[in-house]
Design a binder for these strands. Structure first.
Length: 270
DNA sequence: AAATTCTCCTGAAGGC
DNA sequence: TGCCTTCAGGAGAATT
């Protein structure tokens, strides 16, 4: 389940092997992802050099002279650099050859996507309405206050809304709310200024820490098994329903919110 | 316009 | 052992 830290780790892992490199061949083994991989993708990128590689939310944007390739890992996707001739594994959908190595996209559940876009990537329909990056200076208390006023939905759904702020998936939403001591079902527009600031800082802290720890996975990225970084992270609530709260020892509660597993402490989060 | 529900997909886990 | 059912989840699309 790649969340923002995993996408950032992927980006940093792939970057040294891909940036300023020429795509020699592009093979699409199975283009039936969330949206079909463009049939002419190979024609677009073969022979071209990757001139920029960046992340926006959970999208990875690969820039060529003539356009951009947008990658999204969905919830089971991975993008990895492997030696030439590495045996094809199940669910390896795309394979790009560079000089001396290959880039593989593997995605069992096929919730990911690989798209082509011409013109500024900021204008792509999937990207143009995204909220600020949580680790940028745009994610201010003033912004959060203004946004929260407009939303009466549960605070957990609010922070998971990519139009509000990008990159906060289910795992880190649970963790950030616990850290901020806020009940996940509380209406966003009912939060006090102090709560909003605690939540904002908790999001920044949880994501920032996860990215730092992702660096552990990063070191052996090439040819490694690609273990997601968050497994190495100590999670306070996610996946711990029924287990004692790390603060007060009361068993953690689980419910469903927007069809997503929500775990919290009834005593510490109100 | 915002809130809610539905949808895609496969592998893991649980029940019998 | 094996088959069936259920569940997990990112996030856009459809619906209210």
């Amino acid at each position: 389940m790649p969340e923002l830290p995993e996408v950032e780790t992927t980006l940093q892992g792939v970057k040294p092997h891909v940036l300023h490199q020429q795509v020699i061949t592009c093979h699409v083994h199975n283009g039936r992802l969330r949206w079909p991989v463009p049939a002419d993708l190979a024609k677009r990128v073969e022979g071209q050099e990757v001139i920029a590689l960046e992340r926006r939310g959970k999208y990875i944007i690969m820039t060529f002279k003539t356009g951009h390739v947008l990658w999204h890992l969905g919830m089971s996707g991975s993008l990895r650099v492997l030696p030439l001739g590495a045996p094809l594994a199940k669910h390896d959908h795309l394979e790009w050859a560079f000089l001396g190595h290959i880039l593989r996209f593997n995605d069992p559940r096929r919730f990911g996507c690989v798209l082509w876009h011409e013109g500024p990537w900021q204008s792509h329909p999937l990207l143009q309405h995204l909220g600020p990056e949580p680790l940028s200076e745009d994610f201010t208390l003033a912004y959060c206050t203004k946004s929260a006023q407009k939303h009466s939905c549960a605070v957990k759904l609010w922070i998971m809304n990519a139009k509000v702020v990008v990159g906060v998936g289910n795992i880190y939403a649970n963790e950030a709310l616990f850290k901020a001591g806020i009940h996940p079902l509380k209406a966003a527009n009912q939060l006090t200024r102090a709560q909003l600031e605690r939540l904002r800082l908790a999001i920044v802290s949880v994501l920032g820490q996860a990215i730092t720890q992702g660096g552990t996975t990063l070191r052996d990225f090439v040819g490694a098994d690609g273990k997601p970084g968050y497994f190495a992270q100590a999670l306070s609530v996610y996946g711990r329903a029924g287990q004692p709260c790390v603060t007060c020892a009361k068993p953690l509660t689980e419910n469903r919110l927007g069809n997503r597993s929500t775990v919290f402490c009834e005593r510490c989060q109100c």
